[in-house]
Amino acid sequence: MTEPGLVRTAVSAVLLVLGCLAMLSASVGILRFPDFYSRIHPAGKADTLGITFVLTGLMVREGFTLVSLKLLIILVFMLIASPTATHALAKSAYIAGLGHWKKEKGKDAP
């Protein structure tokens, strides 16, 4: 793990910050949304975006090495696996007949 130049350090820092923000918003969304189906949205998207940014940031910092290749392998796998796991969850709940929350006029969320 070599010491990169200033530009690369800055770019990777920005990517890491963006990734952490996306991951935090995913967590807050999972905590805050009213029902299971809407919680899937932050889990499937913001989280995928977060890990993409974090791993890309580490790759920029590292440059073209074997470590970067491993990071890329993790990234590709996460990009395939994360939506698939989300979809499997959603399908399982849908088949089991879990009801979904609907917005109603004049009534606030539970």
Binding site: S25, V28, F33, P42, K45, A46, L49, T52, K102, K103
Partner: peptide, 24 residues
């Protein structure tokens, strides 16, 4: 699209009134 959807979700999560209107 992933970047756009991350921003979209972050906006809906962090907005105080939580502007979602789910449907199937």
């Amino acid at each position: 699209q992933i970047v756009l959807s991350g921003l979209d979700v972050a906006y809906r999560v962090l907005h105080p009134s939580r502007p979602i209107d789910p449907r199937v």
